[in-house]
Write a protein that binds this DNA or RNA. Structure first.
Length: 660
RNA sequence: GGCGGUGUAGCUCAGUUGGUCAGAGCAUACGGUUCAUACCCGUAGGGUCGUAGGUUCAAAUCCUACCACCGCUACCA
């Protein structure tokens, strides 16, 4: 049936069901869907995959808190994913869950194969683990906060030191091959800035990757060792091929669709997709995907959107308010290729008004009004002689628009692809003005010219609407209907992207405007009111809220504590360490001894605020060099989130007093 | 600290290999039109193209230094 057609396999990341999805996820999936629809329209045999990444300690814990099995906890969340994708009219061909039997089987096959050939080996892993992020971090990746606790570089929460027997994947063995591949295939990592980052990352040397865990159970067991669970990236990335049947009995789809044309991912996970994943495939001796495209983030004024910050924008609300077509258009039109955008509802509404309501919607509406008034609601094919320079220009631009759109889409430059369509629409509005059909209508000698003008308006709209079909699931068919082409499916497809197909006698059916204008001033007022309400609510919440504290460290004895020698010291001098953000160099007095201490508190204290104060020093800490300065001890401070306070004595105890 | 990137009109940004490159869209002001969803069309705004040098007949476009911001990476007792 579809034999012989070129295939196009596109994927989104599989999303983690720990919270609701926000418009950032919506962007990724809408972008992939638009590309999938575009390729289908162009006649490709498309396979579009999305899914959910359901394993891991975090899910296990959350489920336990709710008294549910992990699967039972995750099921409704996964349903909510599918519900959102349905509302956004995402036409995925397959939705893979990492809890699917097919995936589990496939991952175990993959793991076993690589293990058997010696690229996975058992060793012992000791490392810093961030529970919320479910990630181990290398020493050199960690950040240290002001009181010396190691922090996760991702979420800035404290990490724990864990030791366990683990399986390791020999990334290092494939390092050179990977680098060579990246250099020989410049299109493999897009955009180029990401490629450069990955190249420099690889050049620093890859360390073998820990690919199993024993600290939790909720995952895919290592086939030959049930104490171990296969860890996140090995599990998650494999979805792209297990969904096609890899490692299972039926591999027809794998034969057909692999390698993928594109993995669309957020820029934060480019590294995993361009280093770990290709190396897994190399170890399997399978071909690599053609392209990994790392898109930017949808940002809010208050910072990156993330689940933990809670500042999400609910796509459902936006769909209710503006409709799916408008939301999809906005996201794709505004996000510059590979860059971030700042989302605001006002910008969204403004874009909707200018592009869709004023330009496209209004062009349709005014065109049909004129056809009704001047031509009895019928399009006529004009005589060639009636076409002048303006008509030539319009026809040429229509063809250029098609070419540009296709060129941009091939480069995954969705913003410019949509911009190209709007250029045609804008030109047509100007064309109407230039040709003034209402004037032509008054002169019976210009009847043929009038036909030509109306025809060019209709034909441009038909072409622009075809180009919008990949983006907009609903409105195009309404436009075709109003143009009188509802029954002519043959004039709505990619093969109909040629000038002059609008048939003689087409009867228009003007309807309601397809994109109603948004009242911006009302919206601004509403946003204002909402912001005010949020603020008040937030203030109340803040008072009530008891944030969970960081987990306690293991118990110690009094002897352990006695090893610490804490002393009160007087700060004599304080100055910023040059070329650092966080470091202050303090000169402190301990009895009659003068010491230098470097402390990472510059973000919270001006040097003057500390001079003369009595602070607590870990006096017997082994000295260490920081930025070339020997730090003889460490100053104690309390911190929470982004606030920090250095502990100070309130009375006039002498410098050198013990703290215990 | 290393590597890379960015800094152009009020806002968002285009500007290939140096010579109509000083631009587009939005916003604003004024004018026009009436077919249209107070829409569309036109005109204007005088932005030292981050700063300071340099190369060149000629630089937003090349070089150097510096400043600011961003990304990756390292460091942060």
């Amino acid at each position: 049936m579809t034999q012989g057609k070129p295939t196009f396999y596109i994927t989104t990341p599989i999303y983690y069901p720990s919270d609701n999805l926000h418009i950032g996820h919506a962007y990724t999936t809408v972008a992939a869907d638009t590309m999938a629809r575009y390729k289908r329209l162009r006649g490709y045999d498309v396979r579009f995959l999305t899914g959910s990444d359901e394993h891991g300690q975090k899910i296990e814990r959350k489920a336990k808190e709710k008294g549910l099995s992990p699967k039972a906890y995750v099921d409704p969340i996964v349903d909510s994913f599918k519900h959102l994708w349905n509302r956004l009219e995402i036409t995925y061909d397959d939705f893979i869950r990492t809890t699917d039997e097919r995936h589990i089987k496939g991952v175990q096959e993959i793991f076993q194969k690589i293990y058997d050939q010696g690229d996975i080996y058992k060793s012992e892993y000791e490392g810093w683990y961030c529970t919320p992020c479910e990630a181990f971090w290398l020493d050199r990746q960690l950040q240290k906060n002001e009181e010396g606790a190691w922090l996760c570089p991702d979420c800035n929460r404290p990490v724990e030191l864990l030791k366990e027997e683990s399986y390791f994947f020999r990334l290092s063995k494939y390092q050179d091959r990977l680098l060579k591949h990246i250099e020989e295939h410049p299109e493999f990592i897009q955009p180029a800035s990401r490629r450069n980052e990955m190249v420099s990352f690889i050049n620093q040397g890859l360390e073998d990757l820990c690919v199993s865990r024993t600290t939790f159970k909720w995952g895919i067991p290592v086939p030959t060792n049930q104490d171990h669970v296969i860890y996140v990236w090995f599990d998650a990335l494999s979805n792209y091929i297990t969904a096609l049947g890899y490692g299972q009995a039926e591999q027809k789809d794998y034969q057909r669709y692999w390698p993928a044309q594109i993995h669309l991912v957020g820029k934060d996970i480019v590294r995993f997709h361009t280093i770990i994943w290709p190396i897994i495939l190399m170890a399997l001796d399978e071909p690599l995907p053609q392209k990994v495209f790392g898109h930017g983030w949808v940002l809010l004024d208050s910072g990156k959107m993330s689940k933990s910050k809670g500042n999400v924008v609910d796509p459902h609300v936006l769909i209710d308010r503006y409709g799916v077509d408008a939301l999809r258009y906005y996201l794709l039109r505004e996000m510059p290729s590979g860059q971030d955008i700042y989302y605001s509802e006002e910008a969204f509404a403004s874009r909707l008004n200018t592009d869709l309501a004023n330009d496209l919607g209004n062009l349709l509406h005014r065109s049909l009004s004129m056809v009704e008034k001047f031509s009895g609601a019928i399009f006529h094919v004009p005589l060639k002689e009636a076409e002048g320079a303006f008509e030539q220009e319009v026809q040429a631009l229509a063809q250029k628009t098609i070419d540009d759109y296709e060129a941009y889409m091939e480069r995954f430059d969705l913003a410019n692809a949509h911009g190209a369509i709007m250029k045609l629409v804008s030109r047509m509005n100007k064309y109407v003005d230039e040709r003034a059909p209402w004037a032509l209508a008054k002169d019976s000698a210009k009847a043929e010219e009038l036909k030509a003008v109306l025809y060019h308006m209709g034909e441009s709209l038909r072409i622009a609407t075809i180009l919008m079909r990949s983006t907009m699931p609903n409105v195009p068919s309404k436009i075709f209907e109003q143009l009188g082409l509802a029954e002519r499916k043959d004039l709505q497809g990619w093969e109909a992207l040629r000038w002059g197909l609008l048939p003689e006698g087409t009867k228009t059916q003007k309807g309601q405007p397809v994109f109603p204008r948004i009242d911006l001033s009302a919206l601004r007022a509403e946003i204002e009111a909402q912001a005010q309400a949020d603020k008040e609510e937030e203030a109340v919440d803040k008072e009530k809220e008891l944030k969970p504290i960081e987990p306690l460290k293991p118990e110690i004895s009094i002897e352990d504590f006695a090893k610490l020698d804490l002393r009160l010291v007087e700060v004599l001098k304080a100055e910023k360490v040059p070329k650092t953000d966080k470091l202050l160099q303090l000169t402190v007095r301990l009895g009659d001894e003068i010491r230098t201490v470097v402390s990472g508190i510059a973000l919270h204290y001006e040097p003057e605020q500390l001079i003369g104060k009595k602070v607590v020093l870990v006096a017997n800490l082994k000295p260490a060099k920081l930025r070339g300065i020997v730090s003889q001890g460490m100053i104690l401070a309390a911190s929470h989130d982004n606030s920090l306070e250095v502990l100070m004595a309130q009375t006039d105890l002498p410098a050198g007093s013990q703290v215990k």
